[in-house]
Design a protein around this nucleic acid. Structure first.
Ligand SMILES: [Mn+2]
Ligand SMILES: [Mn+2]
Ligand SMILES: [Mn+2]
Ligand SMILES: [Mn+2]
Lengths: 231, 231
DNA sequence: ATCTATTTTTAGTTTTGTCTAAATTTAAAT
DNA sequence: ATTTAAATTTAGACAAAACTAAAAATAGAT
């Protein structure tokens, strides 16, 4: 009885703010027992370092992060588990919005930021099933499984591909609205085939074939596109 | 410019708590320029009258309710509009959960209480379209249109139907989980045909035919079922 | 018209999450 | 080893939303 209450407290009664902190710490690498600084978290979340310190204490108290004063925070196993469940929800909702409601990939993030905090295990499991258990979100980011496993993919940045190599465009590194809109405008989409034809030493721009059509791409762009190399 | 900010403040930046108050006031009849007492609101929301007073001032300040000290609150036109948009979202999400995710009608309310606060006009419009613009929610409650119109239905309580009259079960007055589960267990569902065979003066119970099968129903039950009478 | 029970409001506190400004610690440079 | 700049924490304040206890207003009964 007491045990159950402890469980409820730790895993279910998370505030929206706490969830956002855990997610951010995870994205900054705090899941690999790396210490993330308060400044880094504050910058990412557009808040103040002093606020981060307060939350670090609170999350530490709850056993979700390890916090050493002046040294930063890293996620505990419980913290990783919680962060992954939020990220899972975020990405599943993004897929839902694109596949079922015809949102474009540059519109989904903002809404998913809200939907990821809905508390209902049944709801997200049903959404998962409705979508036929997708492995990647609309930006090519992997969706953690229910038990918190990631499906890694052997991918590299287009800018790191050698000349004459082939592959398929599988993800974006920058998923900001302007970049996604730029890609749409230039008919660059996930799933497209890519062949690197030539690299320009002068500005590191690339000549590529995308779905058979030849085009030139700046280094800026190439360094924000993930490609799965053919064998 | 200033004007636009005022608009955003009033209509978009509503807190979850403010939205819940407006919804409750509407359900208590505050949309018909009837004054709702702080006590009534507090009881409905399971909070304290003093908290309601605070919120009444705040909502009044925002032009969403008319508030007269010691007299209670009623919704302004802006307040009604906002309340209806929350109710619309709540009911559309309930339909979504039942029709697309196979939730049962006793499971949807709790989740809809969360989903109704998601801020995205596009999202709810797309859900509406996905569901083919439903007019009623799983409990038979009407779904307001985008411009805040209600589709009224000519319905009456089963307990008020005369002997030998026919109709179709179209809604529940009490939509508590126990009542809904009781209806499931007794194969009473919306859409069923109903004929009143006999009324027992002693305890006001009814003998009815439901989908052709004869059954006896207590007054308690009959007074919580809405029926659309056949011409 | 006065009294009284009930309702409602006020005043003061609490919790959560944020902020600013000041103090402290750390890390880098001399 | 000092000095200095940057990062981090503390202290104190604030806003939102709730609460309790006390004060004030209302409405009903005499
Ligand atoms: Mn996203
Ligand atoms: Mn994404
Ligand atoms: Mn409901
Ligand atoms: Mn309903």
């Amino acid at each position: 009885m007491l045990n159950k209450n402890v469980f409820l407290e730790k895993y279910f009664l998370m505030t929206r703010s706490e969830e956002n902190y855990l997610k951010t710490i995870f994205h900054l690498g705090g899941g690999d027992s790396k210490s993330i600084t308060t400044n880094a978290i504050a910058e990412q979340m557009e808040t103040k370092p002093s606020s981060v310190t307060d939350m670090a204490k609170k999350l530490s108290e709850k056993g979700l992060v390890d916090y050493v004063r002046y040294q930063g925070v890293s996620l505990t196993d419980a913290g990783i588990k919680t962060a992954l469940s939020i990220i899972r929800k975020h990405r599943l909702w993004e897929v839902f919005l694109v596949k079922k409601l015809d949102f474009s990939w540059d519109e989904v993030h903002e809404v998913a930021e809200q939907l990821e905090h809905i508390k209902s295990e049944k709801l997200i499991d049903k959404i998962d099933a409705l979508l036929d258990f997708p492995k990647y979100d609309p930006h090519g980011d992997p969706i953690p499984t229910k038990d918190g496993k990631f499906q890694e993919r052997d991918e590299k940045l287009l800018s790191d591909m050698p000349i004459n190599s082939n592959g398929i465009c599988v993800g974006v590194k920058d998923s900001s609205v302007p970049f996604l809109k730029f890609l749409d405008k230039n008919k660059i989409a996930l799933g497209n085939t890519i062949k690197v034809l030539d690299k320009e030493d002068f500005d590191n721009s690339l000549r590529i074939q995308m779905n058979g059509k030849e085009m030139r791409i700046s280094h800026q762009i190439a360094s924000n596109l993930y490609v799965k190399k053919n064998d």
